[in-house]
Amino acid sequence: PMYWISAPDSARSVDNLAPAAPLSLAGEQSFSPGGLQLTWDPNSEADLAGYNIYRGTDESFEPGPGNFLVSTPDTASFDGGWSWEAGYCYKVAAVDVHGNESGFAVLSPDMLTGDDPATLPDAAFLSQNWPNPFNPATTIKFGLKNRGHVSLRIFDAAGRLVAVLVDEDRPAGRYEASWNGSDARGARVASGVYFYRLAAGDFVQTRKMVLLR
């Protein structure tokens, strides 16, 4: 910890009281963009400046300059360098305006939420939408075995592009997208047969669905 030392004649007190450690530290896997979203409860100290975040490879790591990740005034932080395979542990400390640092909230890999490798799909897939037929909206589930660019597009019976639901890079995982029966301009499309196509690397699959107004 650092201490704020006042001169004897400054009429200021010495503040060497560190803030309380942050509470309710949690980590959730993010898919778009890929990484880990860290969150915690706000501290109540009036002289709070923010929070220091450290990242190591086991719970016993000692926070310091070599594993310092970022400082933030917020109660959330995003780590785009995270992955399940890395096995990162995180420690978060509150810091006041005098530089006093609290004890640490600790987050280990087994405390994270999201799709860990054991639940990732063995192969890319595209499920039948549900409900089908549908009105006004339907859900399409799909999965990716590997990280990469993925697109999910809707076409009408004549093969014309109607809407793009997904068009971005995503990590391996299970996903779902919703279509509300509108085109790219937001206009409602007519009842009829439509096709949705998933393209992810070498995997391309098309399925049929029916919209009933």
Rank of each mutant, 00 (worst) to 15 (best):
L36T: 08
A18R: 02
G87Y: 01
N180M: 07
A199F: 15
A118K: 04
L212N: 04
L36S: 03
W179M: 09
V193R: 10
D156I: 11
W179D: 00
S102H: 01
W82K: 02
G27P: 02
L69K: 11
G81N: 15
D47C: 00
F134K: 05
L38D: 00
L23C: 06
P121C: 14
A172L: 10
P42L: 12
A94S: 05
P131M: 05
Y54A: 05
Y3P: 14
L165F: 06
A118Q: 04
W130I: 10
V95Y: 02
R213H: 07
S60V: 09
L112C: 01
R174F: 08
S127F: 11
N67C: 02
V106D: 00
G143R: 03
I140H: 00
A200M: 09
A163P: 09
L17A: 13
A93W: 02
G103Y: 03
D122M: 11
A123S: 13
G99I: 13
A105T: 02
A137K: 14
K141N: 07
R207E: 07
D9E: 11
F203Y: 14
G186P: 03
L165M: 15
T206D: 15
S32E: 08
V189E: 08
S182Q: 01
R207A: 03
A46E: 07
R170N: 09
R185I: 12
Y51Q: 09
P131H: 05
L144A: 00
T119P: 01
D47R: 10
H149Y: 12
C89N: 05
A46M: 07
L165K: 06
P171Q: 06
A163Y: 13
E85C: 12
K141W: 11
T75A: 04
V210S: 00
T39H: 08
N67I: 14
Y196K: 03
V14Y: 07
L144W: 04
D74Y: 12
A94C: 02
A49Y: 01
S6V: 13
N67K: 03
F78Q: 00
L198F: 14
D96V: 00
S60D: 11
A123N: 14
W130G: 10
A76G: 09
G148M: 04
F31R: 11
Q128E: 06
R188F: 10
P33Y: 04
T39P: 01
Y88G: 01
G87E: 03
M111G: 09
R160D: 15
S30G: 10
R55K: 07
W179I: 05
E168I: 08
V166T: 10
K208F: 12
V70Y: 12
N43M: 14
V210Y: 03
S13A: 13
D96M: 00
L198N: 03
N180S: 09
D9K: 13
K141C: 15
E168H: 14
F68I: 13
G81D: 15
D115M: 11
F78S: 09
L112A: 03
T75I: 11
R12E: 13
N16L: 11
F125N: 05
R147K: 10
P109V: 03
T72Y: 11
A123W: 09
A177H: 06
E28L: 12
A46C: 04
I154W: 13
D122C: 10
G34C: 03
D202A: 03
K208V: 15
G201C: 05
S191W: 07
R213T: 10
D74H: 08
V92M: 10
N135P: 02
K141S: 07
L211A: 01
S191G: 14
D96T: 06
G27Y: 07
L161E: 15
N43W: 05
A18N: 08
F134L: 13
G148F: 07
